[in-house]
Design a protein around this nucleic acid. Sequence first.
DNA 1: TTGAAAGCGCTAACAA
DNA 2: TTGTTAGCGCTTTCAA
Lengths: 334, 334
Amino acid sequence: MASIKDVAKQAGVSVATVSRVFSNEPHVRSEVRNLVLQVADELGYRPNRIASSLRKRSSKVIGLLVPDIRNSVFVDIARAIEDVANSQNMSIFLCNTDEDPAKEQMYLETLLDELVAGIILAPTQETREPFEFLLKSGTPIVSVDRRINGAAIDCVLSDNVQAAELLTNQLIGNGYTHIGAVLGLENSTTGRERLKGFERALRKHNIEIDPDFVKFIHPDEADSEVIVSRWLRSENCPNALLTGNSRITLGAINAITQAKLSVPNDIALAGFDDTPWMPFVGSGVTVISQPTYDIGRTAAELLFQRMAEAARPVREVVLKSKLIERGSIRTLRP
Amino acid sequence: MASIKDVAKQAGVSVATVSRVFSNEPHVRSEVRNLVLQVADELGYRPNRIASSLRKRSSKVIGLLVPDIRNSVFVDIARAIEDVANSQNMSIFLCNTDEDPAKEQMYLETLLDELVAGIILAPTQETREPFEFLLKSGTPIVSVDRRINGAAIDCVLSDNVQAAELLTNQLIGNGYTHIGAVLGLENSTTGRERLKGFERALRKHNIEIDPDFVKFIHPDEADSEVIVSRWLRSENCPNALLTGNSRITLGAINAITQAKLSVPNDIALAGFDDTPWMPFVGSGVTVISQPTYDIGRTAAELLFQRMAEAARPVREVVLKSKLIERGSIRTLRP
DNA sequence: TTGAAAGCGCTAACAA
DNA sequence: TTGTTAGCGCTTTCAA
């Protein structure tokens, strides 16, 4: 593998000049630049990114931490970030935290050891304390989907409170008052804010909030199925369900199907997150569609802006979700 | 940030000794080792991975190239690889190629520039030639889901021919003879092998193969919808569909729904790739379930084995898919 | 079992 | 506009 020295020697210039050519620095005679480029091409030279990173104390890589890339929201966000990074000739480290603070911490430390140029994360916790070492490191950070309270970092998320209220109103408007909510973990922004929206809608309509009808779970099919199955077997069973993400929705549908019940005849369903298949399960599921790709793209753009200018004012971008009405809520006759 | 020098000075040993401690080399007195560890802890020292990579000419990162992480197969594979990598204290670079050889080439070069320890890729092409530079680099490589012909590299895929034959037989066995196949790109292993299985099944049952009923597309909803819509409007319309992945399946369902037709009454459907939602679209979709997570895990394991022993014999692992019968094929009365 | 020292390939300050 | 040179932080001979 040819190094910068080989190119310099072969072209009869110094290594500094070769470095300047490949860093697109202006002060190089175009004659010299062309010669260097030609020689580099002949030798098959490519700059060693690791050496460059060591010297500059920053790599051309950004770290991405998500709970689980298999979640439709996070895979869209990841794809968007990768697209933006790619356009800037940068790569991304993919890290799944599984909502586990210890795993998250381990990954963050590794990312710092790798001298990443920046980090985008969906934090597993909302308090500032576990991220203190990260913030102190000075590495540019953007949080997505969730906030870190009291941390002056850029943040991109969707309007969870409003969205949950919208979804709940959709149920209430169709005559439902016994609504069970199955949400993601309570100590995350999304879980908490969606609860807030849910409760706000109920309160505005003077519907009593039954604490048994609100469950926070590890946001996947399995736990969702367990909770919903239990509800379906109980005497005091909700007649409508609010689900906190697409996997929770699927778990709920599974439980309903296994109980030989059907949506929307026996129970109404309104969920978070649109996916390509939501139109086709049953008679379609009414959902909140988050602008997932835009969230990722915006987060990446904010990160690059911060990398370019560390002192710029911190921004929090809240993107609008929209309600997509389909066939999972029938109107209840009073 | 404390460096190895700081630790050495503070502990009264040489940097070599500190290096040995953190590389878990045996020849260090345990007394000295403990002292170094303690001092390192006090100073908050963590080895700089970039410096280590430069010196060792190999990083603790493996590159992963997939067509699109949003594809359910590849996201599972990616997750599995990440799990294995994580257990070895390594990170992964995520790269989406979009089935574009130029993008793939660009990423591969970047990965080499980053001195990755290994690469796992689902190649966009089957010929050896575009990967010549990669093979020459000596970087450990494993291909997943697809082969590179004539390249002596480890490879993990599923039994595409058999699976396609199984799926086609399922349709034929229920009385269908006008079967349209919508498959992924022809120049990939999966596309080609699945066609082979499809044709073999037809041939064994003496059913004529209509070339108009075989389409290779960019494997996503949009193109699938276009093809299937066109078929549905034509006079010579298939009465059953074989779809090459979950997104193609979704596109087909979309086209069928828009044509006011239904599965399985008007048209039968059998597809590749099981997803959590396949049981719930319509009366469930009969599919081939590939062992996606296992494919990824196996690929990562082969890669680590090759990293440990460059000269070991090349392995090709073919994992079994299974047919999952659901409600998308009704039996045709003759 | 330990240390001294060379050097991985690059960037950037400084000098010319 | 170009070159010289000193490291970035680590690993790895080689010698002790």
